[in-house]
Each structure stands twice: as C-alpha cells, then as structure tokens.
Simulated scan of single mutants.
Amino acid sequence: MANAAQPFLFMFGFESPTEHVLNERDGTDFESSWAVWISADDGEAALAWGREIAERFVGLLYERASMPPRSWINDGFAHWVSDDAREL
C-alpha cells in the first residue's frame, strides 16, 4: 500500500531584489525567508517540490522587479522541511 500524503512545512531563505541591491552596494548580508505547506509522500518529495517552488518564487520576484533573473538553486540558500506543526 502506498504512503498517504502528509503535510510538510518547507522553509527557505532567499535574497529579495531590494536586498540584493543593498547587499551588493553596501556589503551587507540581508536575507528573507518564507515557508509553504506541501503535501507529499515523504520528506524527500517535499524537499524536491519545495525547491521547485522556491526557484519559481525567486524568479518571479526578479522578473516583477524588472531585474536580471536569478536562480535560487544556484545561489544555494538554506532550506529544509519539517513535519512538526509546532515549528510554526
């Protein structure tokens, strides 16, 4: 029998367009974070889907700011999943 999908909280860091400009200009290290609930069969599947979401999310931020595209995956930001609702 296949595993039933369960909720995972995918959390990830990223650099917004404004933070990127400030970090480049001032040598700072500002960073934002975001989280999204993902329904998946296991933690690895949740991580894989979360990485796709983060990549697209950051891509859209830069597109909407009319800035050159950035790749969240290539930038190597921290990310993880949890199935512990107490982490909220």
Rank of each mutant, 00 (worst) to 15 (best):
W49M: 12
E31L: 11
G43W: 11
A65C: 01
L88V: 08
S71Y: 01
E63R: 12
P69C: 05
A40M: 12
G76F: 06
A4G: 02
E44F: 01
A85Y: 01
E19Q: 12
T18H: 11
G13Q: 13
Y62H: 00
G76S: 09
A78K: 02
E24C: 05
P68H: 00
S82H: 01
A5C: 12
L9Q: 09
T18N: 12
G27K: 06
G27L: 11
D84P: 09
N74E: 15
G43Y: 12
F14H: 08
P7G: 00
E52G: 04
S32E: 04
L9V: 07
A54H: 04
P68V: 00
D42G: 10
L88C: 09
N74S: 14
Q6N: 00
R70N: 08
E52V: 04
F30S: 08
Y62K: 07
Y62V: 09
A45Y: 03
G43P: 03
D26S: 06
L61P: 02
L47W: 14
R56L: 02
A65T: 01
G50D: 06
A2C: 04
A48I: 02
D75C: 10
H79Q: 14
D41C: 01
E19Y: 06
P69F: 02
G50W: 05
A85P: 15
F57I: 03
P7Q: 06
R51S: 02
N3I: 04
F12T: 03
A35I: 00
F30P: 00
L60E: 15
E55F: 11
D75N: 07
S16L: 04
A85T: 04
H79M: 03
S39I: 02
S16D: 08
F30M: 02
I73R: 12
R86L: 13
E15D: 12
W49N: 06
Q6C: 00
S33W: 05
M11N: 10
W72K: 12
L47S: 13
L9N: 09
P17F: 00
P17K: 11
A85I: 01
F30W: 14
R70C: 09
F77H: 15
A78Q: 01
R64D: 11
N3P: 10
W72S: 09
G59H: 08
